[in-house]
Design a protein around this nucleic acid. Structure first.
Lengths: 301, 301
DNA sequence: GTCATTCTCTGACCTTAGTCAGAGAACGCC
DNA sequence: GGCGTTCTCTGACTAAGGTCAGAGAATGAC
């Protein structure tokens, strides 16, 4: 990355932190301490929540949350229905609590509106579009890739979502058992590996790599959760697998795909894959691709 | 503005505040309390500063700054050369202070880099471009417009900057005395008004309006400080003057401009002005424009 | 029934980031 | 030299936002 880019990010952080931060305090700070507000927000949506999970999601100390809850309780914003397991505390918003939460909501809206207000219609469009871009790319930046065993619950979750989606998209459905690689064991070391992408701990994408001895590497089961598409995640998964294949000694990586998966096909072409004749008899494939791996050291992506 | 726009801004605030905030604490929080860091930063650049102005710029309490300075002094980061006026305290960074400041700088860079790191080159370009847009538009949003007397120091400052700039741009220079409106008194109620745009208290732009009895309104002296151009400020000044002219009862607003001011000419055309034959004998003008004002209520800009 | 484990809650303590009201030093003006 | 003004510094106080170490209740396994 360039020094100008770093400088731009710093300037952005300064401006945004100041501008949004100051207004944030102005609009929300007056209402309720931030800790309480966050908790109120997290408990939110009507139902009963066990304190433990709320606390985990906010990453707060148990004693601290306990105190915050007592403060909310004192103000009549929260009640504790008694739970099954009486060690675990559960909470629910009272109607006053829901009112208060709505009030915080309004303040948040007012804060947002105050940022847009001085701008004209064109500027507003540009601002929100740019914000969407920043938000998506910053989200993309927190996604981490991890090698998991294909039997790991998160890996299983991805593989299932993958199969469900293909069943919906393919003419005539999709039956993993009929497809090649019915056994995910091939995606386990030393015969291969399985990559899972996580966002805030949740699995949002996966990709498998077969590393057969004496044969080209093969990419399988590339999937990205629909609501996280457009972040460049598939591209990243692909790049990571290619790098690992190259490190393993593979000189060629191959993959097949179905004609229904147009975005995927486009991605493969964009990423330097060239279409080749069928190299296997995968019943669900219409296109086969390969890419020659270069051994030069990893570039600055 | 639309509800979707408000929602987008809120989502942006959440994502960015969390992501940047958390990392900010992680990278900078470990180093030095934020208050001290800010002060260190503000004292910065080698020279001697009087505490008063530093304090004013940061908007902090005198007692608080006094304490912060003592903390920095205890750590040997700051010295106090004794000043002329011994009521006024002055400070300068020691070499250890400069080292510490450089360290904070590095951390800020590292923070910025950590946001860019997981992205590929194309994504980085998109992110920084979007950040620049957000930053500029949020800056634009804090600019306030104010009616000032043309003799007010900030108004004088703008008018002088305007004249200086024209002198540089026009073939043959610019002499305000030779131009029409040598007397800024015409831009004072009830014969007119003078608008100054401020960013963080500093004047960054101006525009004058003549409201002659029984004649069309006339816009004069539109100027925006070079480093705040591109924020839509001129457009905003123009819109504000038109609105005030309409409220005053004018049905037509006119203005003249020099051929060297291409951006201005473009702005006038874009804003609905049409070129007309010369309506005065302003020696510096090459183009004359007018715009018919409609009486319909102010639109949602 | 016993016992280890799992949770929550409380008290004690801490830092940061301020605010506010003088006290007191230094200065400028006459 | 006197006097009002200008600055800084100190002490006293606040609130938020935590952290940490048990105490004690409830539960599950055996």
């Amino acid at each position: 990355m360039t020094a100008e880019q770093v400088e731009q990010v710093r300037r952005f952080n300064r401006t945004v932190a100041e501008r949004v931060g100051v207004l944030h305090d102005h609009y929300l700070g007056a209402a309720r301490p931030y800790g309480q507000a966050r908790l109120l927000w997290q408990i939110g949506d009507g139902g009963t929540h066990d304190v433990r999970s709320v606390r985990d999601r906010l990453g707060l100390d148990s004693g601290y949350v306990s105190r915050l809850l007592r403060a909310l309780e004192r103000d009549g914003l929260v009640v504790e229905p008694h739970p099954r397991d009486r060690r675990v505390r559960t909470v629910r918003l009272t109607s006053a609590g829901r009112t208060e939460r709505a009030r915080l909501d309004e303040r948040s809206d007012a804060l947002a509106a105050s940022l847009l207000d001085p701008l004209d219609a064109r500027q507003r469009d540009r601002l929100t579009a740019a914000m969407a871009t920043v938000e998506r790319l910053l989200t993309a930046a927190v996604v981490s890739l991890e090698v998991l065993d294909p039997d790991h619950p998160d890996a299983v979750h991805c593989l299932r979502a993958y199969a469900t989606e293909l069943a919906r998209l393919f003419d005539g459905g999709f039956d993993p058992a009929r497809s090649l690689l019915p056994d995910p064991g091939e995606l386990r070391a030393p015969r291969g590996l399985f990559l899972v992408a996580r966002l805030h701990g949740e699995p949002v994408g996966c990709a498998g790599l077969k590393l057969p001895a004496g044969a080209p590497a093969e990419i399988k089961r590339v999937w990205v959760r629909p609501d996280t598409r457009g972040l460049g995640l598939a591209r990243r998964l692909l790049a990571e697998l290619e790098e690992r294949a190259a490190r393993h000694g593979s000189e060629l990586v191959r993959l097949d795909t179905n004609k229904a998966l147009e975005a995927a096909t486009r991605l493969y072409r964009d990423s330097g894959y060239t279409e080749v004749p069928a190299f296997n008899d995968e019943p669900y494939a219409h296109h086969w691709f390969e890419k020659r791996l270069t051994r030069r050291p990893r570039q600055d992506r």
